[in-house]
Each structure stands twice: as C-alpha cells, then as structure tokens.
Design a protein around this nucleic acid. Structure first.
Lengths: 211, 211
DNA sequence: ATTTATATCCGTATTAATACGGATTTTTAG
DNA sequence: CTAAAAATCCGTATTAATACGGATATAAAT
C-alpha cells in the first residue's frame, strides 16, 4: 500500500501536534510536515510536489485558509486540500467547496471519520459528510446572498461604516459626495435585505463581511 | 512523584484526543477522563474527588466553560481549572480569572508551556503567562465597562435595537415615550464609549452582549 | 436616616440616515 | 457587437438618531 503523504496547517500548536500524534498510529499515513499559517504551507508545498493531502484550518494568521486554498491549485496540482474547521457555517462550507476543497471536517469529528476521509480523498475523490452537505444546502437555499454580492465600493463603505464613520466622513475619505455614499448605503441595505444600520452590522458580522 | 490527575473538557473530539496523546507522554500526568461539555464534566468531577486539574474549553454545547467554571467550585473544592481557549480576548480572560481559573492558555500554546503550567497549577499556584496578563490588563484599563454595566432596561433596548427595531418601535413595545428610548440609546452609547449605532453593534457583539 | 449614585423619564434642536426618483458609466451575457 | 444588468454618481424630502439640558424615583453606601 502506498503511503499517504500529508501536511497539517493550523495555527494552534496543541491541535497540530495532537493531530499528528493521532495520525501517526496509522501506517498508511505519513505526516510529512506541520505548518502554522498559509504562507508556510505554500512555501512548503511548492518544494514538495509529492504531498497528497493538506489538512487546512480556515482561521490562521498571515495567510488564512481561503487564500491558501486559492493559491494551492496554482502551486501544486497534485495536492488535495481537506478543510478542518470548527465552524459548521454554511457560508464557509460553500465557499471552501467552491474553491476546490476535497472535504470539510469539523474539529469535533471523530478519529475514525478523519482517517476514513483522508483515505477517500487520497484516491482523488471528494467527500462531504451528510451533516456538512446539509448545512451547505441550507445555506444555498436560504441565502440568495453570495459572498461577493457587494461591489468593491460597497464593501469599502461597509467597512468604514462598521468603524463608526458617518456618511459625511466616508464621503470625505473617498472623495465623493455624501449623496453617493448614501446611495451606497441604501444599496447595501437592499442587498443584504435589512432595513437599518443596526441590522446591517449584525448581518454583516454573521456573514463575515466585517470583523 | 505524585501523579497529576487531569480531566479534559472540550467539544472538539480531534483536539481532545490529540491533547490526550500529547499528555500521555508525561509520566507525572494522567488523563483520567475526556468529556465534551460542561454537564458531563460536572457529573464526572462530582463522583471523582481526586481530580487535580481540569483543562477546560470555553465554547462548548449544553453547558459552556463559564458556567462549568462557576459550578466547579461548589462541586469539588480540590479541582483546579485551567482554561484552554483560542480567543486571546481580554474580556474572556478577565472573566475567567475572576471566576477562579488557575490559568488561561491559548490553543496555540506549545506543549512545553502546557505541561509547565499543568505542573505549576497542580501545586495550587495560579499562573498566567505574560502575554495573557498583558491582554487582561489592556482590557481592564481601556474598558471600564464591566459585563453588567448595562441596566436591565438598557440591555432590553440594546437587544431590540440589534433586531432592527427603530426607537419608535421600541417605545411602542415597552409602553414608554420615544424620548425615553432615545435617552436609553444615548446612555448605552456613552457606557460603551461609542458614538453611533454601527460602532455600538460592533462593540456589543464583541462583548457578547448580543448574539 | 441621609447622602450619593444610578435608572428611569421627557422637551427642544441638530445632525445623520433612509426613501424616492433619476442619470451615466462599466460589466456581463447572449 | 449589442442589449441587459450592475456600479457609480447626485438632488430633494422625510424620518430616525444623536446632542444638550433637566427631572423624579429607586437602589446602594455609610
């Protein structure tokens, strides 16, 4: 049996090392390397074309999982990413699936499931467990709002709103009329299907459009 | 050397098991039990008075870390809780310290540090590593805001604001004049030290005053 | 028991946010 | 290449949110 060469990318050292220990027990799986952010991961994978699988966390410093997922394809076409996240958030799951993840596991997955998925993915098959698929479908149906629904300007305005800036201040910062910013605000409200600033911020936070 | 008897409470199976594997290597530490939420933890500790240390995650289903921390004291006076969280959030840290945690570790702590802290705490000494203490102090100084700074009415108003209600709607709902609600709003802004609704919601979310 | 602080309530004035309507430019789709 | 859609821009009018000032009632502190 061919050994599955695997890299772990997670910024939590305890988790990373713990995972490594767990995987060590399986003779068909070799943890080649552990890294703590996306940059390190890309750097490593670039020089190691024989890596089969990356276990990838979403929330990491420097370069997060999403960005890493994006770059992976262009750097190494052989490597198959499996996301390991603690968020069973339809938004995240859908985004990862779209960006080429081969699977999406929660951190409360049990060991057997993890190893099972690693083996499946190593054969170039995608696998999303039923609970994850369900979340993804729920999200798709209830949320016509895709993650890039806001235009660049709108996203910029939203960010400034969330920092406590008023319309006037934002207008000054972006060198346009206040009226323009007011239109942006109105369009943002409409797109996110909310009726005022309070609701807007709540929804934007939930959708991770802002911190 | 006396063995340190320890329980792990974390809802992420992979983390829990990984941690157990890591701790297994140390002969002076015995992982007696792993549980996945606060309820299980309390139940276990109640019937096992010889437990020295609990490694406790904050975010867990059923009964979260805070609640568990609270109940622990009344159930078993011998057990010393160490929080293991991924949030280096001054708010959390201060709250845990106040509630009797013996230490607060981040999930990206390295193994050596973890084991060191376990040993220190097992001797009934509290230990907060410098970076954590710093966060806590920052929080204390910048935030005169304790978690129960808002009056009941104010909290109620804040909740309704966050649901997208306008001042007028809130006034109708609470059977008072709009002007009263406006004063509440003003007081809430002042207490949280923000200048408008957008900032308010952001801060309230961060402080977990609202979902 | 009395001071002190805090929560609750309200009026008037100002500023900010939203509604409605409309225009031009840039992207996207066929 | 052209039609449709979306992004960007702005004016006027209305409504909502915030600033300032002040009052009473309740809770906490000594």
């Amino acid at each position: 049996m061919k050994t599955i060469k695997l890299v772990i990318a997670d910024d939590h050292e305890l988790f990373r090392n713990g995972l490594k220990e767990l995987l060590k027990r399986h003779e068909d799986i070799e943890v080649v390397q552990c890294v703590s952010d996306g940059e390190e991961l890309i750097k490593f994978v670039k020089t190691h074309p024989d890596i089969d699988i990356v276990l990838l966390d979403i929330t990491m410093p420097n370069m997060d999982g999403f960005e890493a997922l994006n770059k992976l394809k262009s750097v190494n076409t052989n490597v198959k990413p499996i996301i390991i996240s603690m968020h069973d958030d339809g938004n995240y799951i859908a985004k990862c699936a779209k960006m080429g993840a081969f699977s999406y596991l929660l951190k409360n997955t049990d060991q057997e499931e993890l190893v099972k998925v690693v083996r499946i993915v190593s054969e170039d098959k995608k696998y999303f467990s039923p609970n994850i698929s369900e979340k993804m479908i729920d999200y798709m149906s209830e949320n016509t709002v895709s993650e890039d629904i806001l235009s660049k300007k709108e996203a910029e305005v939203l960010l400034l709103i969330s920092k406590g800036n008023t319309t006037k201040e934002i207008a000054a910062e972006l060198y346009v009329s206040s009226r323009t910013i007011e239109t942006h605000r109105a369009n943002i409200l409409k797109k996110l299907n909310v009726k005022n600033t309070a609701e807007l911020i709540i929804k934007a936070v939930k959708m991770k459009l802002i911190s």
